[in-house]
Nucleic acid binder design. Structure first.
Length: 765
DNA sequence: TAACACTTGTTTTTT
DNA sequence: ACAAGTGTTA
């Protein structure tokens, strides 16, 4: 190992093996906090050192943010230009790029734009209206998810009609016309030169399936393929990867089945579980040592996930300090929960000299952030809420981006509809409806009708025609100028010409000022983007290029991390995946909230919720607190809640339930009250002693099994246990991870403890 | 056509 | 509680 490969020394054995095995398909099962990203980045650096060209490496990540982070870590290991040249990004962004390049082959214009889910929903509603279907029966959200499922399964609108299973399902679900909706939806998207997220993956598959020479080109181009978060890939993504690697088999996928939490988006753990079927010559690497969390946190999380049936056997362990147990915080109401969490944060911060930035409050649904925010504000605790309404979801930003889209691709119907009368220019609903009807009747785009209303027999008043013409002329002019200008220049022009700038200047209300600021922020972002590209590549950035970046940006990526800002982080558990914090509060642990009520009747879904809870707990490095409320304000009314049964899924040995308060109802706390009558006790009663103890032990790591007693314990040692106090070791039995000690405690009697878990320290030998 | 009040549904997570 | 969609009025 030469000095250049010094980074390999920082890896543990299994990490290093995973990094250095490059001769065939590799499946890396990476437990939470096991250094997965490190393995991926080191592996890419290693490949580069082995002589792979950066252009020959395709690395697919789950979020843009993850890609950015990995890039910068690779840049640190190798150099900036290497990292820059890698094909690294999300499935969607990489294949958007490729599809634009190959657009001709799939019959799309190279400047095709992206419909985000709001666009796609609004298109669905237009189609429903057109077909005169009742939105209560054909619920747009349902249609949308069904569309997505079909596309993820690679069922095109044409094959859908021939798919008996699908069609019969729709009959039963009382939506027999779904296939017609699908057909029209596809036709409209095609006409608009637009693809939704799922279509990107579907079309990529079609491209690779129907054009063998193109497939071959990319197979040879991507000499090595890596996929992060493989457990979250759906069938369409899985198939793309399979196709790209089917010749050379140089593939490495990394994932953790225990953290698969996106099945609602079509993610399928089977992709990971069946990796061996696709690549019989594969090797599996398990990263089982958790470097992130204390033993208590890891053990509690293990005991929880042990309740799931479907999983790859693995044994995550920690050799960090035992740490404190998972604390459970019970409160009377969501309001009180907020108060308690805020107090705990303040207290812990003082005690541990922590920063606010070391804290995270996690919840199942975005709606829960409100109460927390309120509580934090009251205590003057700085915080930052992630998700909810991201920058790119704001109306003014969406509007200006719609202008960009139309400039690049005027047939983009959803974008055009957004801006046709914004800012108001006298083209009202009636007019738009007439244009839309004509477009549908003649099977052309809205823009085409707008360009020549008379040709499509649209009856309009003289004034309306004039206004349409003026709008049309303005857009044409912008499109023309766009050919000469770079993205930042045209953007600025657009803001002025469209009248948006003026509209926000009209009256200086608070909202308008904020809108203006947002607009300015976007312009700054574009300018920065262009400047960076100019520096890096020496080339000008077109509006199309910028749009490509921006269309696939999501909340997850907007995390413009002010690492400096000392703020508590508030986010959903989903959003927290991949992150870590010293102190984590998992809130709202109640039945029908976490696990979600939606999961109730599907064991599958409950397991996914449990994995979600697992993800939540394993974000914590030092302290993890789990809280629930007995009453919660939901959907405009107060609802009584029961604690989540997931709380009982954690082995009580790693959980501290002493905060358990007798609940305060009228009649108040009676310490001696019979268990059966109290709601609290029904909870307490469920705390079975070490329910899965034996199972857990059996599945513990065999690492060091051959060794003797870990920790150097000997019979006769005086030890201290966090809970039981001082004691003396009477005898030792077993070895390695199964080593047990029988300890006689001064105050708590004699107990037999599994040394792996027990928080025992030697006082005197 | 636009502004306003009213009604309605809706909350699970998101590339 | 809230947002989005609908209907009513000027």
């Amino acid at each position: 190992m030469n000095t250049e490969e010094v980074y390999l020394e920082q890896l543990n054995d299994s990490q290093r093996e995973a990094v250095m095995y490059c001769d065939g398909p590799a499946l890396v099962v990476a437990g939470a906090g096991s250094g997965k990203t490190r393995v991926l980045t080191c592996k890419i650096a290693y490949l580069l050192r082995q002589g792979y060209s950066p252009y020959g490496i395709l690395a697919l990540t789950f979020t843009n943010k993850a890609a950015r982070e990995m890039k910068s870590r690779i840049a640190a290991l190798t150099d900036e230009s290497m990292a820059q040249r890698l094909w690294m990004g999300t499935f969607h962004s990489i294949f958007y790029r490729i599809l634009r390049f190959e657009a001709e082959q799939i019959g799309f214009p190279p400047d095709f734009t992206i419909y985000d889910s709001a666009d796609s929903k609004s298109l669905i509603r237009i189609i429903l209206k057109e077909m005169q279907l009742d939105e209560k029966v054909y619920r747009p959200a349902l249609i949308q998810s069904r569309l997505s499922n079909a596309k993820n399964a690679l069922i095109t609108s044409r094959s859908y009609e021939q798919n008996r299973e699908m069609v019969e399902h729709d009959m039963r679900a009382q939506i027999p016309l779904f296939r017609e909706i699908y057909k029209r939806y596809q036709a409209r998207c095609f006409q608009a030169g637009a693809m939704d997220f799922d279509e990107l993956l579907l079309q990529t598959n079609i491209l690779l399936r129907d054009h063998p020479e193109t497939l071959l080109k990319y197979q040879e181009m991507f000499r090595y393929v890596l996929v992060d978060e493989y457990q979250d890939t759906n069938f369409a993504q899985h198939l793309i990867v399979t196709r790209l690697c089917e010749r050379h088999h140089r593939i490495c996928v990394v994932g953790d089945d225990a953290q698969s939490i996106y099945s609602f988006r079509g993610a399928n753990i089977d992709n990971m579980l069946r990796f061996k079927d696709h690549y019989p010559d594969f090797r599996i690497f398990k990263l089982e040592r958790n470097y992130r969390s204390t033993q208590n946190i890891v053990n509690a999380a293990n005991s929880l996930i042990g309740k799931n049936r479907e999983q790859i056997p693995k044994t995550v362990y920690s050799e960090n300090e035992p740490g404190s147990k998972i604390r459970i915080l019970a409160s009377y109401s969501d309001y009180e929960e907020g108060y308690l969490v805020a107090s705990q944060i303040a207290e812990l911060r003082m005690r541990e000299h922590a920063r606010y930035a070391d804290f995270a409050i996690l919840y199942r649904t975005n709606a829960q952030s409100r109460v927390m925010e309120e509580a934090l504000r009251k205590r003057n605790i700085a915080y930052r809420v992630y998700g909810s309404q991201s920058f790119y979801q704001r109306k003014e930003i969406r509007d200006i981006i719609a202008y960009f889209r139309v400039t690049v691709n005027p047939h983009d119907g959803e974008a055009l509809r957004r801006i046709i009368n914004f800012p108001a220019r006298g083209i009202g609903e009636t007019t738009v409806n007439k244009l839309l009807a004509a477009a549908a009747a003649h099977q052309v785009s809205l823009w085409t009708v707008l360009s020549a209303p008379a040709e499509y027999a649209v009856a309009l008043s003289e004034g309306t025609i004039r206004r349409l013409r003026s709008f049309h002329a303005m857009m044409e002019e912008l499109m023309k100028e766009n050919r000469q200008l770079s993205a930042d220049e045209i953007a600025e022009l657009l803001v002025k010409r469209s009248g948006m700038a003026a509209a926000f200047f009209q009256d200086r209300t608070v909202e308008n000022i904020s809108r203006q600021e947002n607009l300015q922020e976007l312009l700054n972002a574009i300018a920065e983007f262009c400047a960076t590209r100019r520096e890096e590549t020496g080339e000008e950035t077109s509006l199309t290029d910028f749009l490509m970046e921006v269309s696939l940006i999501t909340d997850q990526d907007t995390g413009r991390e002010d690492r400096e800002a000392d703020q508590v982080t508030l986010m959903t558990v989903h959003a927290a995946k991949g992150l870590e914090f010293d102190n984590v509060f998992v809130t709202g642990m109640e039945e029908n909230l976490f696990p979600s009520a939606m999961a109730k009747d599907s064991p599958h879904a409950v397991e996914e919720e449990r994995r979600l809870f697992y993800v939540a707990i394993t974000r914590a490095r030092k302290h993890c607190t789990v809280s629930y409320a007995r009453n919660r304000f939901r959907n405009g009314e107060n609802t009584a809640c029961r604690p989540s049964h997931f709380l009982n899924d954690m082995d009580p040995r790693y959980v501290d339930r002493q905060e358990e308060q007798p609940n305060r109802q009228a009649g108040a706390a009676q310490p001696g009250r019979t268990f059966a009558s109290s709601p609290v006790s029904s909870f307490t009663r469920d705390v079975r002693p070490a329910p899965s103890l034996t199972k857990l032990e059996v599945s513990r790591p065999e690492a060091g099994e051959q060794g003797g007693i870990p920790g150097g314990f000997q019979v006769g040692d005086i030890v201290r246990h966090e809970r039981f106090g001082r004691g003396r070791i009477l005898s030792l039995e077993g070895g390695g991870s199964n080593a047990r000690a029988s300890i006689s405690f001064e105050h708590s009697g004699t107990k037999s403890l599994l040394l792996k878990y027990a928080k025992v320290t030697i006082l005197k030998e």
